Simulated scan of single mutants.
Amino acid sequence: MHPPESTPAPEAANSREGRPRTGAKDVAQLAGVSTATVSRALNNPESVDPVTRQRVLDAVAKLRYMPHGAARSLRSQRSKMVGAVVPSFDYALYARTTSALQQRLDARGYSLVLAETHYDPGAELRVASQLAQHGVDAFVFVGLDHDPTLFALLEDYGRPYVLTWGVDPMCRHPSVGFDNEAATHAMARHLIELGHRRFGLLSAPVAGNDRARARGAGLRAALVEAGLKLDEGCVQYAPISLQSAQEAMTRILDQPEPPTALVATNDVFAVGAMLACRAAGVRIPEDISITGVDNTDLGATQSPGLTSIRTPIVEIGDAAAAQIIARLEDRPCELFQSFPIEIVHRGSTAPPNPKRKYQP
């Protein structure tokens, strides 16, 4: 990792102590409820009917309300706790990144608090608010797609944060990651150079998932540059699991003209695709080339081994922790870090076979 450059922290990371703060009475008045209902909606939301709760949340967002007691506590002392909010505990890569994050934080005397959101922006906002009210000093989030209200919340609390697994191209939000679009673009170029002209894409749903969206865009851009087109019948979106990937790949193989090359947006999808091919008698790479992203042991230990993009899984967690620690301790740091990626070539890719045996 390059030596940190001295970069002023963005406005969102600075304290807002000088600004008059909105009170619970203001929120109650705007929402047309009592202050007790405001308290229940924020602290015990299941006890308030959804319509009323939404009115309170809308008022909170409009007035950018923060509970006074929590704000005073946060201004007066540090908890030495950092919150890591991830989409899912089920995805092993987030666990590896979080482990690296925890190790660097622990070495400096900070504790890590974990929460998951199941790819729900509303849940992410709620969890972040609860953690902030309980005194968490800083936050680490996954990806670049977040409800704008989240950043307003962090600004009001004056809490530093860093986004991971991507780098904000507009440099609005501190971020650590890599170019997701460039990763699959490079992989698609490799397959095109091997001679492939008919492609498939296996991806996570793109709503609220900038990583999936960027990786799909990388494939599409490479195909356009080569004068090729992606058949939408050979595009499948699925939850990140081997079973879902296998089922999605089966649908691709059932197309009238199945692809000769598949770009999967992570190794779980790629290995699930391999399982589907084996079940259907489709040979890899003789009948189809398959590629992944992240270069995990799951893909490396397949037969044949999976050609995949090595991504900075551990480096992201370590760098995110280093940035958070520096900002909490008022030291200079690099706010935007993009790590390199590379293709790891294995046996799952080869030139297309004009005599391939598989036919749907």
Rank of each mutant, 00 (worst) to 15 (best):
R172A: 14
V127P: 00
V86W: 04
A212V: 03
G292W: 08
V263G: 06
A207V: 10
A238N: 13
V263T: 13
V51E: 15
A300Q: 11
P351E: 08
P4V: 01
P312D: 12
Y94M: 12
V38Y: 05
I316T: 15
Q302P: 01
S47K: 03
L230C: 11
A28N: 04
Q302F: 04
A280L: 02
D120Y: 14
N43V: 04
G216V: 05
G227T: 00
G69A: 02
S308W: 07
L275K: 13
T311E: 09
S241F: 00
S111A: 13
N43K: 02
R211D: 14
G317K: 06
T149M: 03
T52C: 08
A182I: 02
F336G: 00
R327Q: 04
R16I: 15
I316V: 12
P160W: 01
V263P: 06
R126P: 06
A326H: 04
Q323Y: 07
S73Y: 08
C171D: 09
I284D: 01
R310P: 05
E329L: 06
Y91D: 12
A13V: 09
I240P: 00
I290R: 02
S111V: 08
I192A: 02
S15R: 14
G135A: 08
G299F: 06
Y110L: 04
R283D: 13
G195W: 01
Q243S: 15
E334A: 06
N44Q: 01
R197Y: 05
S203I: 10
V167C: 14
R197K: 12
V33S: 03
A217S: 15
L230W: 05
P258Y: 09
V82D: 13
S338G: 08
T22G: 11
A115G: 15
A92E: 07
R64G: 12
D330I: 06
E11L: 11
E124K: 05
P160N: 06
P169V: 13
T291C: 14
P148H: 07
L93S: 12
R19A: 15
K80F: 12
G195A: 08
V282I: 04
E286H: 13
S79T: 10
D137Y: 02
T301V: 06
Q323H: 00
E124H: 07
L150S: 11
D106M: 04
Q103T: 12
D26I: 06
I288F: 05
Y91R: 12
H185P: 10
D58R: 10
L63S: 13
L114H: 03
E11Y: 11
A24K: 00
H2A: 10
V314W: 07
A320C: 10
